[in-house]
């Protein structure tokens, strides 16, 4: 039986927007296909995990208070994270975690929270606390070189991220990395870093399957053709949302 191991970072602190759903979706889609899915978690006070021994590292978004507590803890693993990314471990980073893996986060008062510097982008809070990028968002994403696909989610962030040299997607509806941006997130073969909640994978089974396929091919060194699943609900959900959001723009 094939197996995929996921490391879930700070599950008790980065858990504000239902991002854990991403792991549930991955697990569901693997188990339906007879692939075992093991989920370990790491939080403050736990023994140092061997990041490179996992297939997927996942982290989500949290409350400001929690995020500032854990940023310090996370920094001690700066080098290990870089190595894991280079080795090809898949990183799925949502919202707050997306920001933490960049160069820095500059708060409203100009205070700088250093990031892990694994990726080249940086984030700056917008001066007006009440102004945030909030709402449904649709991206056009090219996961592999082939046919692009539409990705649907919900963004809710005050931070504006700049310097994402290779964005996750082109914005068809919504804001993106900053107000009115044309681009959203950060992407390279084994990294998806994005502001999209929803949770992201619940409405985008293609993205979930891309991650699963990537992990299996890397781990077992063979070409994987994933068995199709019954995605009626997902398809209907996407149809309904795309119809609503992309039509409303015109």
């Amino acid at each position: 039986m094939k197996e995929v191991k996921i490391l879930y970072l700070y599950p008790d602190m980065l858990e504000l927007y239902g991002d854990y759903g991403n792991i549930q979706v991955l697990k569901y889609r693997m188990e339906k296909r007879g692939i075992a899915c093991v989920v370990d978690s790491y939080s403050i006070g736990d023994a140092k995990p061997d990041f490179s021994s996992y297939d997927i590292v996942f982290a989500g978004g949290g409350a400001d208070n929690e995020q500032s507590i854990l940023a310090e803890d996370l920094l001690q693993y700066k080098e290990e994270m870089k190595v894991a990314v280079q080795k090809g471990v898949f990183f799925l980073l949502i919202c707050g975690a997306y920001q933490l893996f960049g160069k820095y986060y500059k708060g409203v008062e100009g205070n700088v929270i250093p990031g892990l510097e694994v990726f080249p982008y940086y984030t700056e809070a917008i001066g007006d606390r009440k102004k945030r990028c909030i709402g449904n968002i649709v991206l056009e994403v090219a996961l592999k070189k082939e046919q692009p696909t539409k990705v649907i989610g919900f963004e809710n962030h005050g931070g504006q991220t700049f310097g994402s040299v290779s964005p996750f997607g082109k914005v068809l509806f919504g804001n993106g990395n900053s107000f009115g941006d044309k681009q959203e997130g950060f992407f390279m073969g084994n990294v998806i870093a994005t502001y999209l909640h929803g949770p992201l994978l619940s409405k985008n089974p293609e993205v979930a399957d891309y991650i699963i396929e990537y992990c299996l091919e890397r781990k077992y060194g063979e070409t994987i053709a994933l068995q199709a699943l019954d995605d009626r609900f997902e398809q209907k959900c996407r149809e309904q949302m795309l119809q609503r959001l992309l039509k409303s723009k015109k």
């Binding site: 759903g21 619940s202 409405k203 019954d230 609900f233 959900c237």
Partner: peptide, 24 residues
């Protein structure tokens, strides 16, 4: 207005999708 989102949620939690009926 979001019947499918909640259907996906229940399905993922392990409830048999054949016994979930979304209605618009």
């Amino acid at each position: 207005t979001r019947p499918y989102d909640i259907a996906i949620r229940m399905k993922t939690a392990g409830f048999d999708s054949q016994k979930i009926i979304p209605c618009e």
